[in-house]
Simulated assay, not measured.
Amino acid sequence: MTAPARRRKSTTREPIIQESETFPEPGTEPGTGPGTSAESADAFEPEATRRAAGVTESSRANRGWWDRNADEYQTDHGTFLGDDRFVWGPEGLDEVEAELLGPPEDLKGKDVLEIGAGAAQCSRWLAAQGARPVALDLSHRQLQHALRIGGSFPLVCADAGALPFADASFDLACSAYGALPFVADPVLVLREVHRVLRPGGRFVFSVTHPIRWAFPDEPGPEGLSVSASYFDRTPYVEQDEDGRAVYVEHHRTLGDRVRDVVAAGFRLVDLVEPEWPAWNSSEWGGWSPLRGSLIPGTAIFVCERG
């Protein structure tokens, strides 16, 4: 699961990461340490704006952002996510209870693609049910965390808009906040998922609930007043001094998401809006018990390939 880790400011099957690769300590891998990108990323405060951002710019920016911030993300959220849980969003909805991919006993022997896998917690849970998962992520550093935690399934570093798999390779696909909130052309990704699924295959993905874009991304009372148009699809972009995007999120309305699913050839089976449970007292960026009790934070789309 790779949910946005920062608040929006106002305004083949062979693993690419080999099992023999060692996991370096944070700050010791190439490109980090004093005076290099990791330290500079902490020191530099990017400018937040709303502007157009295309497919290539969005992919490049978000690959770099997740590579730079994967360590902090796993430190901050690793306990909540666990090593082998399948959590659909900050509300804590667990696939054990939701069964959106089907009953756990039916997953045995199924080929499953996880898109935007992060540290592959969901794939690890799927493997424990007897499934044959493949964990794919744009960020090499996120997959290094997957390698650190362990697992006997393939890890693939690739863009979700150009899946490196043959047609009809998988029975199921899933994405817990992976890829789709960050891509400029979601239909491109959905069509790729449709292509690699077998007939009758199910794709379940979760994203930030579109209504959240009308509210400030704050967990407290200040996040409960509408501050922007729900219908403004202009992407949220953080950019450097030269105007280059370093982080991008894309907004689609609920209707847009439904039309994207249908345009890619899927049938929408269900749309789940998890309620905030009483047991969950944690905050995650703009998600919180206060806001979660009043407005939805996550939308989960259950789709099937004809």
Rank of each mutant, 00 (worst) to 15 (best):
L81F: 15
S152F: 01
V187T: 13
F231P: 00
R132M: 13
R13F: 07
C157N: 14
G243R: 04
S20T: 12
P4E: 04
Q74D: 12
A179R: 03
V87P: 06
E99Y: 14
L147V: 05
D240A: 07
W65H: 15
V55M: 04
G220F: 07
E273A: 09
C157W: 00
L101H: 07
A41W: 10
T75I: 06
A263W: 04
P289H: 05
E45I: 06
T75R: 14
G200F: 00
D260R: 03
S227G: 10
T253A: 01
T49M: 01
D111I: 00
R7C: 15
F231E: 08
F301D: 00
L172S: 07
R198E: 14
S206N: 06
E29V: 01
Q144M: 15
H140T: 13
V261F: 13
R51M: 05
Q144H: 15
P26W: 11
L100I: 08
V246C: 13
R124E: 08
V246M: 04
P274E: 00
L163P: 15
H145S: 05
W125F: 11
T22C: 02
R50D: 02
Q121C: 12
A38R: 15
E25M: 12
D106Q: 14
V302N: 00
A135L: 06
D240W: 13
A61G: 09
S37Y: 06
L93Y: 04
D94W: 13
A278P: 03
A52M: 11
G92Q: 04
R257H: 10
H140A: 10
Q239G: 05
F266M: 06
E99Q: 15
G89I: 09
S169M: 12
A98H: 15
A176D: 03
